[in-house]
Amino acid sequence: MIAALYVETDGAYFNLAGIDPWDIRRDARTYPGPWPVVAHPPCQRWGRYWHGAPRKPHQFRLGTDEGCFASALTAVRNFGGVIEHPKDSHAWRYFGLATPPSSGGWVKADAFGGWTCCVWQGHYGHFAGKATWLYVVTMGSDGFLFDDPILPELTWGPSDSGPTQEMVERYGYEKARRVGRMALVGGKDKTRIRNSTPPEFRDLPISMARSASPKNSFSQPAKESK
């Protein structure tokens, strides 16, 4: 079993065998274990406009996400699994995680056995490229961290997120290239498309989480010796 935390109601992680989805109604901050997790904590207060919209800056304080990222980090360190956040998330610096190179590849993230990388979801079916940082912790069946875990070789480097032919024909190449794909998606679908997780990419963190111990964690009491 894999617990999918902070996911969209009826979204990509629902109705999947072996996946226990935690949407806003269940409050993933209260996740007690014991299963490894795939966590998508809210990113609004960690991104480029963490302080608010450009026309109304400094409405918010950095990282005021009601403890969502902190609880996701605790869950991954206790039970194993993956956190997904947008590239350049301020949460990495705030929580002392190493910044992964944009060119790709896994690097050690911290002293808690975590590893991190940068990957573009455009290689896995996303419309707009969507550069993403991953934080991963894997454990053995005894609940102890792997010192040198086997991590997947992903498709590294930026994906093609330039203008489509339809956009070039409609707006001209210069404007289409300047504003990017997502800026040319209008209406209510814009946010949905940007936030969506393609099935091919969704399956990557799920497969990584499955390598973590399903039942053991550092939060469990040690067994008494006989």
Rank of each mutant, 00 (worst) to 15 (best):
A3K: 10
L5M: 11
Y6P: 09
V7F: 03
G18I: 13
P21H: 11
W22E: 15
W22A: 13
W22Q: 10
D23V: 07
I24Q: 13
R25W: 04
Y31L: 07
W35F: 04
V38R: 04
A39C: 10
H40W: 14
H40P: 08
P41G: 13
P42S: 00
A53P: 10
P54Y: 12
F60S: 11
T64Q: 06
E66S: 05
G67N: 15
C68R: 10
A70T: 11
R77V: 01
G80A: 10
G80D: 11
G80I: 09
V82L: 13
H85M: 08
A91T: 03
P101E: 10
S102E: 02
G105F: 11
K108G: 02
C117E: 05
G122I: 09
Y124K: 08
Y124A: 02
L134I: 01
L134N: 09
V137W: 03
T138Q: 15
D142W: 11
L145G: 00
I150T: 10
P152A: 13
S159V: 03
Q165V: 13
V168S: 01
E169P: 01
R170C: 07
R178P: 00
G180A: 06
N195M: 03
T197V: 12
R202V: 10
R202F: 01
R202D: 05
N216P: 00
P221M: 04
